[in-house]
Simulated scan of single mutants.
Amino acid sequence: MPLDSVTLGAVVFAALVFAYTNGFHDAPNSLATAVSTRTLGPRAAVIMAAVMNVIGAFLGEGVARTISRDIIHPPEGTGGAAVLLAALIGAIAWNVATWSKGMPSSSSHALVGGMIGAALASATTVEWRGVASDFALPMVVSPLIGGLLGYGAMLAILWLFRRTNVRRITRNFKIAQSASAAAMALGHGLQDAQKTMGVVVLALVTTGYQNSYDVPLWTVCAAAGAMALGTLTGGWRIMRTLGRRVIQLDAPRGFAAESTVAAVSYATSFIWQVPVSNTHLITSAIVGVGATRRLSAVRWGMAGNIVVVWLATVPGAAVVAAAAYVLLSTALPI
């Protein structure tokens, strides 16, 4: 079997492992608020999130094209496949490390960090303009938007229902939150499954098995299935952090946070076609809705720890990916 085929198979396998870790690592994004407010039971929430992840994966290719074309340009053949394999190793390692600590971090940022680290270690061209416009800018802006929109959405809810019985509004918002949790899980599938697809497509182009950046149907199915399987395994450690340790949520605040994340996910996927982190969005939205209660209601120490992990994600995954490439380059005839 040609070496290019072997390395391509390794990249595809690693990409599916990454999608799996993305599922169990980022499942709490779609589950934590609904479970912590007792709107959904854990089992029902996991099944709902997995189903909506799969549906979302089939709704677009724009983010996949951005990942495959605008971040790095690996060399053709085995060398390029090795770069992508090292990038995925870095992203997977970071996902597992942060999951083991129960800390929410961005699988998307780990993937891009891994791509940049492997590229720098291999002297591969990095499309810095694309990194700045399609990754760095959304990375900085999206949490700010999530926090502000979450704050604004919760203020609107408080004003609109200011004369409504508290028990009645909570009961009704539990029903509404079931829909908003499903919408957020759909947005997660739409965004994050495409990132796995983008890496696979780039590997196909790099090894000469495909000339265009179109996403094959088998790639969509494989990425969706791997992510759904990961989601079904849950991510309870991170769920406790998001659902209880940042702020104690109720149904109206859960609805406001989830609706905010769903809206931003759809806009960035369909309009701007740039990758964003659902982890960053839901965390910032939770902080935003919590701040409407009072600023002291937010556990700022825990929020600060999460921000530290956010800032460490790109360089951390990049370092691991660079080390992985060095090891691969000694084992393969690159």
Rank of each mutant, 00 (worst) to 15 (best):
F135E: 00
V319A: 11
R294E: 06
A64F: 14
V46L: 11
L242H: 12
G146D: 03
M48V: 15
S30M: 05
I92A: 09
L155Q: 14
N95D: 13
I169T: 15
N172C: 08
M139P: 01
A324T: 15
D134Y: 14
T260G: 12
L249P: 14
G301M: 07
A267L: 13
V51M: 02
V6C: 00
A185H: 10
W218K: 05
T33V: 15
L204S: 13
L84Y: 01
W272N: 02
L328Q: 04
P2R: 09
A323F: 09
H25C: 11
P28L: 06
R162T: 07
F24E: 03
S30R: 10
I282P: 10
V6L: 10
A321L: 08
M154G: 12
L332R: 13
Y213G: 07
L137D: 00
T196C: 03
R69W: 06
S259N: 03
T7Q: 05
G290M: 04
L31S: 09
N278T: 15
T66S: 14
P275Q: 02
L204I: 12
A156N: 02
N211Q: 02
Y209F: 13
Q191A: 06
M103H: 11
A224V: 07
V264G: 06
V308T: 13
T219W: 10
G235H: 04
T206P: 14
A262R: 14
G113Y: 11
I247P: 07
R69I: 06
T206D: 10
L158G: 13
P252A: 06
T7I: 15
A81I: 13
T231R: 02
T207S: 15
S30P: 13
G147N: 01
A156L: 14
L88K: 04
V309C: 09
T37I: 12
A182F: 03
A87M: 07
R69Y: 00
L158H: 01
Y20E: 00
S329Y: 05
A322H: 09
V11P: 13
P2S: 05
